[in-house]
Design a protein around this nucleic acid. Structure first.
Lengths: 189, 189, 189, 189
DNA sequence: AATGAATGAGCGTTCATTCAT
DNA sequence: TATGAATGAACGCTCATTCAT
């Protein structure tokens, strides 16, 4: 356990590492305890059960990601530039933080994922959604439903980061630029 | 168990249903047996272990999907039309067979997924890959790496089908047409 | 399955091989069937269950061993020579047939071993026992109980054959002669 | 579970009892748990698997036996007396502790027995081996290989204890004395 | 706040045996 | 005679969770 990080944090970190390494199946509570350097019992002091531990981890990771992406937004720029920056940021953040990215992807397909959780994390993405919303209002991008717009941009970004992490694709700055351009063309009016 | 379907088939079907409903974690061999209407032991007569059962299921589902998509290909048409047809087919097939689609998505993030398996299933998709290959050669689409082209088209298609199945998006013919157009614009030269 | 050997025989032979190779624990009925080149079900035509298969095998092996040893007995010789020949034969036969020897040893320590079985096989050893009996009557050997006499001679012989088979002892003709002498001196009057 | 004996000990004891009563095959982990008065899961807190449980039990029993026998050794006595005492001790200890003796005999024929285990337990028997070694050097006993010397003495002792336990032989003090004499004569120079 | 021993249900898998063909 | 599909209990083992300390 790190010195500055409390037990609460070290448990979350251990869970993240184990799930990104071995998946949900290979992540037992006792392994989490061992990795975090704490006893098995104390986990239940900080988290009422495994579900809550994983949900809390997911929500935290999602918040981190959204914050890192939003931090780069510059509202003074054109909506076109802002949207391109969102795609680029999503790729870069996902490539730089493969553990979190892989964990989020696993979470989505797991039984831990429930609508209510997604409602919660969606609030973190509101500033991002607002950019697209405005662009739709100003008829800069196509009048497609939000999930379609996301699928054509941010989901593509994550998909590529995943392939980069798996080693089946090398995402360098030039390629990122080209992908950003392609995503933009998919949704531009 | 269906009347025409043998035990081998009913075990595969039960596995597919359970994984698409409850994920890998919630799919024990005894639940598979119960759902398939067979004894627990007989599964090991048809499949040497859980790994093989799931791998065989995945390979079969992937083959089915690829066949359904390839069947619709019409080589007499322009490459542009063929590519748009591929996107459309992928969405439609994925929407029509949500269980298989969800299972494939779960498989990808699971520890059952191994490079060798992907090598096998990739051979089923060669006719599809060839369409994009030719389009790249004829400079109809952008000279991006294959995984990027796929992320911008087929992966988007599956992503939308998943949202349709989850109820967060209604994919009708009109929307499918619009999405197909958007995907095309993402990759066109 | 050999050509001359019937299924009954090939099942017994397969059982012997498997038990001597992998012990009782590693010898399932289905492995026996596979090794014997027959179906699993047919075993139960020739043997009512696993117990009977193994008991019959044991009794047969014991009879073979006793016959090979008895065949060498020459009643025209002195009892001293006959007894020494018994020890020597037991070592040699046990060394020459390690599978049978190992199977018999395993059987003795297994739950398959029941007093009634030993009563049966003891009848095969009566000619051998008679030699010792006469020697006791003629006061050539010590008046010790039969099991003690056997422990000091035939059991020693098997014990040494076992070590020879395990590779922890090399039994050559010279050593066999010396051991025979030692056993004789243990029981001589 | 005894009051003074911890769970670790009660699991070992239950395992010993069950194996001596019903053999390895009849000794499942759940039966061990039931006999020890503990839950099935806790066994794996004390032993990493069944192999380790049984190996640890074997090594412990072997050490106990060797200590009980060695304790009786009196180096001030003649080698002849010491060797006779070893045979006598082995019989008496084996007769007094039939469970341990039967367990050790079963272990030897089982797949749990591995060369490395025997190397470990052999170190416990070094003081005993040294007695025979010296006797060979001083030419008091025959120059036979160690395994042969043991087969003619200690193995005979165990073999007789086994028969005593099975009820096919009554080992009293008089008979023990006679057997000791016979073993001595087998190996004396 | 913290430990780690303890539980017992459930896991994937094997097995001796049966039986329709 | 002969097959091999089928059963279901039992196996070794893991797990999320609890609780005395």
């Amino acid at each position: 356990m790190g010195q500055t990080e409390g037990k609460h944090g070290s448990i979350l970190r251990a869970t993240l590492e184990l799930i990104s390494e071995h998946g949900f199946h290979g992540t037992s509570m006792s392994k989490v305890a061992k990795r975090a350097g704490v006893s098995a019992g104390i986990i239940y002091h900080y988290f009422s059960n495994k579900d809550e531990l994983i949900n809390e981890l997911y929500i935290g990771v999602k918040r981190n990601f959204s914050e890192m992406i939003i931090k780069r937004l510059d509202e003074s720029q054109s909506l076109r530039k802002q949207i391109r920056e969102l795609v680029k940021s999503t790729i870069e953040v996902s490539v730089r933080r493969p553990e979190e990215m892989l964990f989020m992807e696993q979470f989505l397909q797991s039984p831990y994922n429930r609508p209510q959780i997604q409602e919660t994390v969606n609030t973190y993405y509101e500033p991002i959604m607002n950019v697209f919303k405005k662009a739709k209002q100003e008829q800069i991008i196509k009048p497609l439903p939000d999930p379609v717009i996301f699928a054509l941009t941010l989901d593509v970004a994550v998909s590529l980061a995943k392939q980069h992490d798996a080693g089946t694709l090398q995402m360098d700055d030039v390629l990122i630029e080209k992908v950003t351009e392609a995503c933009w063309e998919a949704i531009r009016q």
